[in-house]
């Protein structure tokens, strides 16, 4: 109710009217006749983007758990390589990593006859395995650092209690350590997933046909510049909003303290006297 009332204050109504005017102006005076022709392609591209986002986030997270664990509690011969991996991934541009994997490995593989005759070769000749690999490694690098903090942030007493009950080490990890670590960093993970969404258009440079590539193609074929870009920005805004909602729901469900969701909601209210 209060959210609705906050939206109805005069200046907001004015801004909304302005925005509605902008939308109507866009609809009337910009060119949209290309949309029906490219709609199927755009939907396919949207699907590729979402698929890339979900698969690389999940795979990257699975890789980030051991990376974080190695850095938090591992012996030096595990923690040093893990730290080096995270530093290198976080210290170089993703575009460079994607090009290194695609052009570098892509030019290396054909030199080996046994790779060319292997069953994997038809896949290795396409672009998407390199895109998935690069995005996965990137997510793992950033998340490995986050998970390091998460693992060392879990209260030691909790782990000791589990050990005192004679729980096996893996059970402690699965039932106490990991769930609490993940719960503590869920907001960070949500932010990182949005960053991952924003990284997906880079794979268009290695010929993966996702939504950004579709918009570039529209621009190249029809010479219409702004309209596809505006739609593209809108699509990314919607996906980012969806990710935020999803993570907020997980946060609220996962919090042990039932008071927490309410205080968080109160914090988001606008500040006023």
């Amino acid at each position: 109710m209060s959210g609705l009332r906050a939206m109805m204050r005069p200046h907001r109504l004015f801004l909304m009217a302005l925005f509605a005017g902008f939308v109507i102006w866009c609809a009337l005076s910009l060119r949209w006749d290309w949309v029906p022709k490219y709609a199927p392609l755009a939907l396919e591209g949207l699907w590729v983007t979402i698929l890339l986002l979900i698969s690389t986030s999940v795979l990257g997270f699975l890789l980030a758990v051991p990376l974080g664990l190695a850095q938090a509690v591992g012996p030096w011969y595990l923690s040093a390589p893990a730290r080096a991996f995270c530093t290198i991934i976080r210290g170089t541009p993703l575009l460079l990593q994607i090009w290194l994997l695609y052009y570098g490995l892509g030019s290396l593989f054909p030199q080996f006859p046994w790779i060319r005759s292997s069953e994997l070769w038809p896949y290795l000749r396409q672009a998407w395995p390199y895109a998935v690999l690069a995005l996965t490694l990137s997510y793992a690098g950033y998340e490995g650092e986050v998970m390091r903090g998460a693992f060392s942030g879990v209260n030691k007493g909790q782990l000791e209690a589990g050990r005192a009950f004679g729980m096996p080490r893996f059970t402690i990890f699965r039932r106490i350590w990991l769930p609490q670590a993940i719960r503590n960093v869920l907001p960070t993970l949500g932010g990182e997933t949005i960053l991952q969404l924003k990284a997906t258009p880079l794979v268009a440079t290695i010929t993966v046909m996702e939504i950004y590539a579709v918009s570039s193609r529209v621009r190249a074929e029809t010479f219409i510049v702004y309209e596809p870009l505006l739609l593209l920005a809108l699509a990314y805004l919607l996906i980012a909003g969806l990710i935020t909602l999803l993570f907020r729901r997980w946060e609220n469900r996962g919090s042990a303290n039932p008071e927490l969701p309410r205080t968080r909601r109160e914090k988001n209210l606008p500040l006023e006297g």
């Binding site: 949005i194 258009p201 920005a233 990314y236 805004l237």
Partner: peptide, 11 residues
């Protein structure tokens, strides 16, 4: 912060 830098750069 929600739209990819690449798209913003083009726009």
């Amino acid at each position: 912060r929600a739209v990819p830098e690449l798209v913003l750069i083009l726009i």
